[in-house]
Nucleic acid binder design. Sequence first.
RNA 1: GGCCCCGUCGUCUAGCGGCCUAGGACGCCGCCCUCUCAAGGCGGUAACGCCGGUUCAAAUCCGGUCGGGGCUACCA
Length: 481
Amino acid sequence: MTVRVRFAPSPTGYLHVGGGRTALYNYLFARGQGGTFILRSDDTDEARSTEEFRADILDGLRWLGLEWDEGIEAGGPMESYRQSERLRRYQDVAAQLVASGRAYYSFATPDQLDEFRKEAQAEGRSPAYDGRFEPDPAEAAARVAAGEPATVRFAVPRPGETSFEDVVRGTVTFDHVQVDDFVILRSNGTPTYHLASTVDDVDFGITHVVRGEDLLSSTPKHILLTEAMEAERATYAHLSLLMGPDGKKLSKRHGHTAIKAYREEGYLPEAVLNYLALLGWSPGDDDTLIAVDGMIDRFDLSTVSKNPAIFDTDKLQWMNGVYIREMPSEAFVVAVQPGVEEHLGRSLDDEEVATLAEIAPLVQERTKLLTEVPPQVAFLFADIEYDENSWDKVMTKEGAAAAVAGAAEWLSDVDYWSIEAVETALRAMLEELEMSARKGFQPLRVAISGSSVSPPLFESIAALGREESVARLGRALELMT
RNA sequence: GGCCCCGUCGUCUAGCGGCCUAGGACGCCGCCCUCUCAAGGCGGUAACGCCGGUUCAAAUCCGGUCGGGGCUACCA
């Protein structure tokens, strides 16, 4: 049997980190098993679905590198992989289910249902609706024929129970008195999630349903539906949910949840993938850094953790730094150049790109997020503004002015401009002034870069050039005296 | 309320009856390196929710309890 799995987001929001992880696990499982990874759009909720979200989900998956083999924009044996385009099929199935007595037209009013549920809760009984208010099939058919609006509900067989072997959770059993006679077709004729999703899983030949734990208690409904369609049930695997730092379900209030936000903040897809993979799965040994190929080799759905995981940005950020440091320097420049240009409000000429490439390795090794690079290198390409705190902390110190003045002189005397020459000159200056490097170089850093935090000084000065460096030292000196 | 799921350092996890005086990673702290900030090196901090039981032996098995989460819609 070839494995067929799917990722089936509904385009009612941006692709979020939890969805990304679900997609990743599906992808890893499919790749490891030589199976097919399908992308489907569960967009039966027209009101909440938007084009923007549809596009964002595809973008996000592609950015992460989770290429799918079949489905949206990839095609495949099915005519459509969007539920909004398969409405007829769901209606047909619903009609068949009514005909075979596995489902029925329901006329129960919201008020009736409300009251029933309230009462059941008050008495500590199951609040699952059991069809007690419905007319007999003949009357129901007549009322529908007369044009009375009705929903279609699945007739859950009671007494009974459904139990299944969840790959990550083990045996799970639900008593049917806890399972609602759920609506499969709304009174406007559109299918609910349960129907559409199950029909698709059956029609698409999905062998393994790997999804979030929020759907665990819906699974008996899906199994019942599958069997009513006389199809073979899939194997289910329910992944624990992702939580915010406060242990509550991850939501907007915990900061960024959208994959897109991480992309914009300067995270690398490799790092996000690596981090997500480890949120609920471990390769078994003590490896923390693992590339996708390694994950595919070693991924095992049955060893996925049952515990909900807290999404902790600290570790992701550290990991991102690791991946950034591992990048070839040229790739780093390419990745960072657009951001620098945007920061500057203009594009870089060839000489400036060369300058950027020159200090890139130095910046690269101290970068955790791509977005922190532009402000750090901008001083090489544009006039600086002094950071107030840095100025106050450094430039008002005793000896600061002397160091700045000394540096201007010594740098002016350098014959052959190079990093080594700059260092030699500045160290000589220090010696002359009998000043420590710590004390003597900080004022220069502020004068040159505008901040007390910058890339290494000699390299920065060398890259900036003699003329501009001396000019900046002069300007700072004026402001100091 | 009912049903279902889950419970090892602050966080992600390893552990599947003796190898555990519980391992790794992030974070945090200290030291070293050092022109700032990082990076790097070294060291440290810190956990089996609780109570019973099974067993010669339990983080590992069982029961209970407490805590967290999910579902309980004509949302998905």
